[in-house]
């Protein structure tokens, strides 16, 4: 572990930020608390995806599989087999980790290129959604309604609004911390080397399969746990939301807009886009169907045209120029993500 990691952990700024976030539920009306919670869900998911997609440079479109497994399998085990949701969370996380491992095996065994990897994971995700919708145990097309949240911690209940916010804050912080730790561990350096030049990485003895598989499994397990908590928060496990490839596309959008391969990039993207989308929905949703997504799409296009390398690299460069030092964290050499 590089000392930079512990230095950053000792930086009081992060702790102040976390404390400020933890105070949020005290002052926010429930509608804005909902938006804040939703933002944290996407911060967590974006950071989890970033481990594979940003640091490792593998465009995985399979993450709806892991979120969907976490959400649907854990909910189905509770409702159809009466198994405690904590157990469901662990089982779903294990299943997701295994699926992630198998995807890594397939990727390695058949030496997939970038685009093939993206398309094959997309095909897996499409198949996953079709299976969830066609399989009654997992709720089928109508989804699963979880029992009301009475705040019983031992039954994976956190008492609605505020409790869910703290759970999501914990998961978002965990997800960001894990990706920050990976960036400062040998794993992160190996992954970035593989991303930037796989042949060179192999030549200097980096174990390609071990590193890629590890990244995929960590990312999948995180996504699955977040999926379980997200379903609990929504109290309705909706297959068209939680196991749909559209979810992955949203996650990738936020990670890309924020800045790939940096620990805070996906968080920044989610922080910008989720509240924007929700507020637009609230203000314009009733005016004309489609208008709020139209504006959202316009903003996405404008932001990408303005910052084609992501927001965070741009901000970091501005700051670095002000202070006149420091390479951005996401790059090994001079080349960025």
């Amino acid at each position: 572990m590089k000392p930079a990691f512990f230095q950053a952990l000792r930086n009081p700024l992060w702790w102040l930020l976390l404390a400020a976030l933890a105070m949020l539920p005290l002052g926010l009306p429930s509608y804005y608390l909902h938006i804040a919670t939703l933002t944290l869900v996407y911060v967590a998911l974006g950071s989890a995806w970033n481990i594979v997609g940003g640091v490792g440079g593998q465009i995985s479109l399979a993450h709806s599989l892991f979120v969907g497994t976490g959400a649907m399998l854990a909910s189905a085990m509770l409702l159809n087999s009466g198994i405690n949701m904590w157990v469901g969370l662990v089982v779903a996380a294990l299943v997701s980790g295994l699926m992630g491992f198998l995807i890594a095996v397939i990727d390695f065994r058949f030496k997939l290129g970038h685009l093939s990897f993206a398309l094959i994971t997309l095909a897996f995700a499409e198949m996953g959604e079709i299976i969830v919708i066609g399989w009654d145990y997992l709720g089928g097309a109508s989804g699963l309604f979880l029992p009301r949240d009475k705040g019983d911690f031992s039954a994976f209940q956190f008492g609605g609004g505020e409790g869910a916010f703290y759970v999501m804050l914990f998961l978002a912080a965990l997800s960001v911390l894990v990706s920050f730790a990976i960036l400062n561990l040998p794993l992160g350096y190996y992954l970035r080397t593989i991303r930037d030049n796989e042949n060179a990485a192999r030549a200097i003895g980096v174990n390609i399969f071990r590193n890629k598989a590890l990244a995929m499994v960590i990312s999948a397990v995180l996504a699955s746990i977040i999926g379980t908590a997200y379903a609990r928060y929504l109290t309705f496990a909706d297959p068209y939301l939680l196991s749909s490839p559209v979810l992955t596309i949203e996650i990738v959008l936020m990670a890309t807009v924020g800045g790939l391969g940096r620990s805070m990039g996906p968080a920044l993207g989610a922080l910008l886009l989720v509240p924007l989308g929700e507020i637009l929905r609230g203000k314009l949703g009733g005016v004309l169907p489609g208008l709020h997504y139209f504006v959202y799409g316009g903003v996405v296009v404008a932001v990408i045209l303005a910052t084609p390398r992501g927001l965070l690299p741009l901000i970091q460069e501005r700051f670095a120029r002000l202070r006149g030092n420091a390479k951005p964290e996401g790059s090994v050499a001079s080349s960025g993500a």
Binding site: I59, T256, G290, L291, G298, I304, R309
Partner: peptide, 28 residues
């Protein structure tokens, strides 16, 4: 054209933004 040559994902995300514009323009 302005972002051609940047990261492949950026171009893909831009076309996804265009997709939102077209889809919801049609819906409207």
């Amino acid at each position: 054209r302005p972002i051609a040559g940047h990261h492949l994902l950026m171009v893909i995300q831009l076309t996804l933004g265009v997709s939102l514009l077209v889809q919801n323009g049609l819906l409207m």
